[in-house]
Design a protein around this nucleic acid. Structure first.
Length: 427
RNA sequence: GUGGGCGUAGCUCAGCAGGUAGAGCUCCGGAUUGUGGAUCCGGCGGUCGUGGGUUCAAGCCCCAUCGUCCACCCCA
């Protein structure tokens, strides 16, 4: 029997990384909250049909990347490969998208059966936001702005490039796709194998092909903008004007196409070069037909999703040093059993009196020198020592570990005061 | 799903004409009866990813398999 280990593409996030991840999640949560978005907690498992209808049954995600589950009662279920479909389903089910405006966000793991790679895991963490009931271009800009604000807060906006495009309404896209397909058909000799395979099902996706010969064909292909009506053009222009007014840089990429069928009009993607091949950190767009497509009363919608694992990788590659959250650690050691018993209660009292300061009581024991070494390795800022002599006098020894200064023997109340003073506001 | 690189101690890695495994760091103990970070000394720790094969003998060669990394692909 082989060793037990995590299954392919599923990773453990260890304390060191977990801290960084929490920082990002907290920042994102704050940011979304500051824009008035409310959190939604959604199931990890949904009916397979939801993704087939929502994401599109011809998409790679649904066709070959879903983790499908045996539900025991026959209904095909899937681990969610993305969050929008579930969020829209919930919005419809609970009336959040009916005759009202909703601003929602969610987070959690998504699952896709892909070949693992840097920045690409089979279970990955996403934070997404969706807004329903607003058809105006200002919403598209606001969603992009949320990303922009968050990236700035995390200090990574310098490394992020925003690409944006419009793919028109469903109807406009249909005519465009026909024209595009015709053009590609007449040049099929120059297309690569992957693109040929897509010709039938999703010719739009050929637009972002990397093959040089295919790209040559694409360069002469009809452009979506020639198929948009005045309203669609105006919508896109308005989005761009808002971005300019918000001071957000962007690049129009006529070949930017999303791999999910539900998008209409605005699509965008924040991309970085720091991460290698998996550079898409956040992406989203408008999906005015999705609510209706999933059985709700027609309502406009738009949203985005941020890949937290990738954002973390980016933060790690950009921010070299990070403040240790253990910098306030208080380490308590005892030299004998009776002192240890007393110390465990004192620890609890300290946790109340110094709320926010982590208090570790050394439960392993041993020689004082050994415990002191442990305190040092744990990164303690202070050590509190209790032994027979302290017990006899009713005091505790407080020793600073990271700064100059002598240790002192203090009664409990004085010790708490000293610590509160030293920690000031406390971080 | 396709291609390539890599899997030796908890971590980073060495080992090679195929002869039965090593270093640094970590950890534990001591030098230093109640005081950490430095130094020195000692110790714990490996079915060499797994399974087969070739061989008197395999960490090293062959096959398979799993994992991992990178790229394709896809996307967050």
């Amino acid at each position: 029997m082989s060793k037990l280990q995590s299954i392919r593409g599923m990773r453990d996030i260890l304390p060191e990384e977990s801290e960084g991840m929490s920082r990002i999640e907290d920042a994102a949560k704050q940011c979304l909250h500051s824009f008035g978005y409310s959190e939604l907690r959604l199931p990890l498992i949904e009916s397979t049909a939801l993704f087939e209808r929502g994401v599109g049954d011809g998409t790679d995600i649904v066709e070959k990347e879903m983790f499908n589950i045996d539900s025991r009662d026959g209904e095909p279920l899937s681990l969610r490969p993305e969050g929008t479909a579930g969020c829209v389903r919930a919005a419809i089910q609970h009336g959040l998208a009916f005759n009202r405006i909703s601003r929602l966000w969610y987070r959690g793991p998504m699952f896709r059966y892909e070949r693992p790679q840097k920045g690409r895991y089979r279970q990955f963490e996403q934070i997404g936001a969706e807004a329903f009931g607003i058809a105006k271009p200002a919403l598209d800009a606001e969603l992009i702005d949320i990303n922009h604000q968050l990236f700035a807060r995390l200090g990574v906006d310098e490394h992020m490039k925003l690409r944006i495009n419009t793919i028109g309404s469903f109807a406009e896209r249909r005519t465009y796709v026909e024209a595009l397909r015709a053009h590609l058909e007449s040049n099929r000799d120059a297309l690569d194998a992957d693109s040929l395979r897509r010709l039938e099902r999703s010719p739009l996706r050929i637009l972002d092909s990397k093959h040089s010969e295919t790209r040559a064909v694409i360069a002469n292909a009809p452009k979506i903008e020639d198929f948009l009506d005045a309203d669609s053009m105006h919508h896109f222009e308005q989005v761009l004007e808002h971005l300019q007014s918000l001071g957000i840089g962007f690049e129009i990429d006529p070949y930017l196409v999303r791999g999910l069928d539900y998008y209409t009009h605005t699509v965008f993607e924040f991309e970085t070069k720091q991460l290698g091949a998996q550079g898409a950190v956040s992406a989203g767009g408008r999906y005015d037909g999705l609510v209706e497509g999933l059985g709700g009363r027609a309502a406009p919608g738009a949203g985005f999703a941020i890949g937290i694992d990738r954002l973390l990788l980016l933060c790690q590659s950009v921010n070299t040093e990070q403040a240790s959250p253990r910098s306030s650690l208080l380490y308590c050691v005892a030299t004998d059993e009776d002192s240890l018993k007393a110390m465990m209660s004192i620890g609890n009292q300290l946790r109340k009196d110094l709320a926010g300061v982590p208090v570790v009581v050394d439960t392993q024991g041993g020689k004082l020198g050994t415990q002191m070494r442990r305190a040092d390795r744990e990164g303690a800022r202070w050590t509190i020592i209790a032994g027979e002599s302290e017990r006899a006098e009713g005091v505790l020894t407080l020793k600073p570990m990271r700064e100059v200064g002598e240790q002192s023997r203090l009664k409990y109340d004085a010790l708490v005061l000293r610590l509160l003073e030293a920690h000031g506001g406390l971080s």
